[in-house]
Design a protein around this nucleic acid. Structure first.
Lengths: 178, 178
DNA sequence: ACAGCCATGTAACTTGTTACATGATTTT
DNA sequence: AAAATCATGTAACAAGTTACATGGCTGT
């Protein structure tokens, strides 16, 4: 539901055409989450189907403009005002992999942890570099991109620390304290 | 692809029937990620379609048994031996919401942050309680469940700290340093 | 008798993803 | 002249989710 709501939120600011929605989304969230342009058009079709936006012919330059409806505005407001539910957190593929690997014979969990730590630390460096390269202006879009990068950095740091903990717990399992 | 691979991984240990796969998955990952039983059967159908498992009539008790194929075993091995890619991290709905909210007029980002912090801290308490209640035996399945809870705890802690940072950055934006 | 778990499935649906086709305009 | 970007769309598909239907078996 992220893309759906994101496009709707951007349309809340004013009528836009598809390609511009893609640009604006990426401008605000950075290159971390690229948005396939095809996805934009299919999502717009579905938003229109659900009466959240209306397709309007063409503007001066011949662009196909979409305008948010009253129902769409209600939807955006309720999206922004309701917190992201932590009742059913998204499945964490890494955690699942380690948890299952631990209980299955013939899986070298230690090797998985080490390989993953390498990947995560490299990702962390990339994010940190991207963060340095992001203009520290005080334009909202810059701040937005910084926040997204910070979020990825925090998440990845937590992942690395979790991997360390897993490794420690793994040793406990190998040498169980009597 | 998580569920697909999880079921395949469990079948790697030996032939199973659908309902048992659900139980074993939840036994190892805890109640954090419930697995809808319907999902198990549809996923098994698709695994069979892709020649990763084979449906075998019935065992002694009349259960519909699935057995992993050679192709399936290859798939499981490559899943366990390849790290989770951080090249295209899953979209973080919370980060998107804040980033967009920051650039849009009429969105009270401060309120979002506070509401979200409340939700996250409550989730953190629930996870911590669940962790205390989880048997600290040295059975692999217990360790697995502990690791999953630790993962959720680490992630949520990181989220709370990130929210604090967002709040601080928000004030900077409101009172830009000359 | 009733609730709850065990057990198997189907149908309809959602979001998201990719590949493809097409063409105009702009930059190198 | 060629490459890149702007711009719109369609078709096919994947994974995941829910609701529904069905029935046996077990414990209270």
């Amino acid at each position: 539901m992220s893309i759906r709501h994101s496009l709707l939120a951007l349309l809340h600011e004013g009528p836009r055409y598809g390609y511009r929605l893609k640009s604006e989304f990426e401008d605000r969230t950075g290159a971390s989450w690229p948005l396939n342009i095809g996805q934009v058009y299919t999502t717009l079709d579905r938003l229109e189907r659900d009466d959240l936006v209306r397709k309007e012919g063409a503007d001066g330059e011949g662009h196909v403009i979409y305008r948010i409806t009253a129902k769409g505005q209600t939807e955006v407001s309720s999206w922004f005002s309701s917190p992201v539910s932590r009742a059913a957190p998204p499945r964490n593929e890494l955690a699942i992999k380690l948890a299952l690997g631990l209980t299955l014979p013939g899986v070298d969990v230690g090797a998985i942890i080490q390989a993953q730590r390498g990947v995560s630390i490299r990702a962390l460096q990339d994010y940190t570099k991207a963060r340095r390269d992001t203009a520290a202006q005080h334009r909202p879009a810059d701040t937005a991109r910084l926040l997204v990068l910070d979020s990825l950095i925090f998440q990845t740091e937590a992942e690395v620390r979790w991997l360390d903990l897993c490794e420690a717990r793994l040793m406990q399992l190998a040498n169980p304290p009597r």
